[in-house]
Every structure is written in C-alpha cells, then in structure tokens.
Amino acid sequence: MMDTMDLRIFTEPQQGASYDTLLRVATTAEQLGYDGFFRSDHYLRMGDADGLPGPTDAWITLAGLARETSRIRLGTLMTAGTFRLPGVLAIQVAQVDAMSGGRIELGLGAGWFEAEHKAYGIPFPDRRIDRLEEQLAIVTGLWETKLGDTFDFAGRYYRLADSPALPKPFQNRVPVIVGGMGPSRTPALAARYADEFNLPFASLDATRTQIGRVRAAAEERGRDADSLVYSSALVACVGRDDAEVARRAAAIGREVEELKANGLAGTPDEVVEKIGRYREAGSGRIYLQILDLDDLDHLALIADRVGAQLT
C-alpha cells in the first residue's frame, strides 16, 4: 500500500476508435472508479494502425461524454495549439465544462505532427512554442476576466480587442495541463500557467530531472512548487500472469520486455512496484495509455488489482 495515486485512462483514438467505443471505455472507467478519462487530439493515425473508422474530434467527443458521464474527470493530452484559435478554444472548453458540471481539464501543447496538418489542410506554422505561450495567456486570461470586464491582448501572433471574455467555465478555474521535456521554456510555461505538469512516456531518470526543473521554475516565480500536480503518461499492459501479459502485448503489437522497460507492464504487483518508483521520482498521478480499447477486462483488472493497492 502506498500514498494515494490518481489513475486516469488515456486513449489514442486516432489509431482507430468510434465515438461509441470511446463512450464505452469512458463509462466503464467511471464505473470502475478511475479518476479521469482523457484522449489525445490527433487527426491522423500513426504507425501500422488502420485508424478506422477515421478521426474523431477531441472536443466534440468530450462534449458528448460530458452529457453521458457524471463523475469522471474529462480532458485532453494534449490539445494541439495549431488546431484552434485560442479565443475559440476558450469558448469551446468553457462550454464543455458547463455541459459536464465542472469536470473538464485542458491539456494544451504546441502541436507537432506535421503529417496530420498536411492531410487535413491545417496550417503548421513555425515558432509554435512562442505561439503556445500566447495561447496560454489568452485562454487563461479570458477565463480569469471578471464578469462585466473586457479582455485585450496584443501579441506577436494573436490580438484580441474589447472581448467580453464569455462564456465562463463552470469551475472557478479549469485545470490547465502543460507537458513535455523541453529543458527551459516548457518548465517556465508550466510554472506560469499550469495547474499540472505532465511527462509523456518518460524514463524514471528523465521524470526526476524534468520535475526538478519545473519545481525550480515555480520557485523562481515565487510560486509554491507543491501547488502543481506532477503526472506521468505511460502505456499499460497488465496481466494476471505472464501469459496474459504476453497476450495483451501481442494485441497491441509490442514486445513484453520493451513494455516493461518503457511502460507499466507485468503482473499487478510488478506494476504497483513500478508506479511506486514514479512516485519516488515526483509523479503523483498516472495516465494509463490504453491501446486496445475493446479489452475492457484490462481496465477492470487494473482497477481491482493495481488501483486497490494505491488508495
């Protein structure tokens, strides 16, 4: 038994998933007691996946799930800053937050997958981290503007004038997630704008190092470093025994030893031990990347045999 560790389900629908599939996973995750259901924000498959029936939009998906779930937190890892103008994104997220009764979280990143932009005619500009900084300032600034006041912003990439800064989210503050391994700009942006800092698929050493950078950046701003949540996203492949682990690894086209080295793979006890090492490295929340969205027994096993040891 270790200190409480939030477990959230993290899906990659661009690899192939309909809305109905995502709904089934989200409602199952809610019933099993997971803290959150999150999805990527991509429009093109990666690797050998067939990607069928085709991409689903992250915020349309979350709007639907907001009305069909009641407790579980919902959000993105990460919304691509290249896909939506920041003023429009602030409206969308605030509306979905209201639709959910205040259960939405926004992971916002710079965008990186150039091929999906080419495939769907989306501009892929340079200096995306500079644009992300302005996007974070605008989205949070719109939400924080007092009712009846207006919001103005004059940046290099975006300009807003006399905005009514509406609608407001249901929550007093929608949690904002920033993530990545950039050594300086990323920690600075997290320290300034984020409620949570996320590390995707990072080793224990990299996790320890990057969380240290973010904590230092927070302290440099005069912010309590403990006011941020620190989280990790890791692929999950858990089985009751070695044969079940191997079966689940084969179903997602991965090797067991590679998954054990780079993710959370093995028996429940092995995975609990690995999560404990991420806890020691500074992470207090785990996003379980689930790649086989038809294997709902996998979710049940993790909840019953892993989650039960983390509470």
Rank of each mutant, 00 (worst) to 15 (best):
L189H: 07
L189G: 12
L189M: 10
A190E: 02
A190K: 02
A191Y: 09
A191K: 09
R192E: 09
R192A: 09
R192K: 14
R192T: 02
Y193E: 01
Y193V: 07
Y193L: 01
Y193A: 03
Y193D: 05
Y193C: 06
Y193W: 06
A194S: 07
A194G: 05
A194Y: 06
A194T: 09
D195T: 09
D195P: 02
D195A: 11
D195W: 05
D195E: 01
D195Q: 06
E196G: 07
E196K: 11
F197M: 00
F197R: 02
F197C: 04
F197V: 00
F197W: 06
N198G: 12
N198F: 08
N198E: 04
N198C: 13
L199H: 05
L199R: 03
P200L: 02
P200I: 08
F201M: 03
F201G: 04
F201P: 00
F201N: 12
F201V: 02
A202M: 03
A202R: 01
A202G: 11
A202I: 01
S203E: 05
S203P: 00
S203M: 04
S203L: 03
S203V: 00
L204D: 02
L204W: 10
L204V: 13
L204I: 14
L204N: 11
L204S: 04
D205P: 01
D205F: 01
D205E: 13
A206K: 12
A206W: 08
A206I: 03
A206Q: 13
T207Q: 01
T207P: 02
T207C: 10
T207D: 04
T207W: 03
R208N: 10
R208H: 15
R208A: 13
R208V: 02
R208M: 10
R208E: 13
T209I: 14
T209C: 15
Q210I: 01
Q210N: 15
Q210Y: 03
I211T: 10
I211H: 12
G212V: 00
G212N: 07
G212R: 00
G212A: 04
G212C: 09
G212F: 05
G212D: 05
R213V: 05
R213K: 06
R213C: 15
V214L: 08
V214H: 11
V214I: 04
R215K: 15
R215W: 12
A216N: 05
A216P: 05
A216M: 04
A216L: 08
A216C: 06
A217P: 02
A217T: 09
A217V: 14
A217F: 14
A218Q: 10
E220M: 09
E220P: 14
E220Q: 15
R221E: 14
R221Y: 14
R221H: 14
G222E: 03
G222M: 04
G222A: 12
R223Y: 03
R223N: 09
R223P: 14
R223H: 11
R223M: 06
R223I: 11
D224F: 08
D224A: 11
D224P: 04
D224Q: 03
D224Y: 08
D224R: 01
A225S: 15
A225V: 15
A225F: 14
A225L: 14
D226V: 01
D226S: 15
D226Q: 12
S227E: 00
S227R: 08
S227L: 01
S227F: 02
S227N: 00
S227H: 05
L228W: 07
L228D: 02
V229L: 07
V229P: 04
Y230A: 06
Y230H: 10
Y230C: 09
Y230T: 13
